[in-house]
């Protein structure tokens, strides 16, 4: 099945069996291996991407369901040579350690900040509740997202 979607702002077409997981389409034919596979059953959040702006687990979405839709992956939050400000905050504040959860964490954080420019710590924790991290104990991730929200507001809302 030919599927056309908007991927990180660009129109892309793939020809794949429709029930191939969005996760496999991204990491394989679409050439974006930033999205990680953790549990493969919708529990850990490491494959989180934005589908029309909402965070979803790419392991539970079929590529055939993405026809005409907009998908944003972690690659879409940075450019080829520079980390985006959100990712930079994770580096500066110890929000990233082994890195497996990080792409999903960044996407969940991006979804939150797009809706809630000044989230409370409780809102940050709720927004990343579907993303498991076994390294940081979460506090550094919460700190990183809080700092990103502050920087973003100072910069006038631009990401």
């Amino acid at each position: 099945m030919k599927i056309t979607l908007t991927l990180n702002g660009l129109s892309r077409e793939v020809d794949l069996p429709p029930l191939v997981r969005l996760l496999d389409a991204l990491r394989g034919p679409l050439g974006l291996p930033g999205t990680k596979e953790g549990c493969g059953e919708g529990e850990c959040g490491s494959c989180t991407v934005l589908l029309d702006g909402a965070p979803v687990n790419a392991c539970l979405v079929s590529i055939g369901q993405c026809e005409g839709r907009a998908v944003t992956t972690v690659e879409g939050l940075s450019d080829a040579t520079h980390l985006g400000p959100l990712a930079r905050c994770f580096v500066d504040h110890g929000g990233a350690q082994c890195g497996i959860c990080t792409p999903g964490m960044l996407i969940s954080a991006e979804a939150l900040l797009a809706r809630r420019p000044e989230p409370s710590d409780e809102e940050i924790r709720e927004a990343i509740a579907g993303n498991l991290c076994r390294c940081t104990g979460y506090q550094r991730i919460v700190d990183s997202i809080r700092e990103a929200s502050r920087e973003r507001r100072q910069a006038g809302g631009a990401s």
Partner: peptide, 9 residues
């Protein structure tokens, strides 16, 4: 019922 990723689907 689930995290936001599950709520969204």
């Amino acid at each position: 019922l689930g995290a936001i990723q599950i709520q969204a689907r």
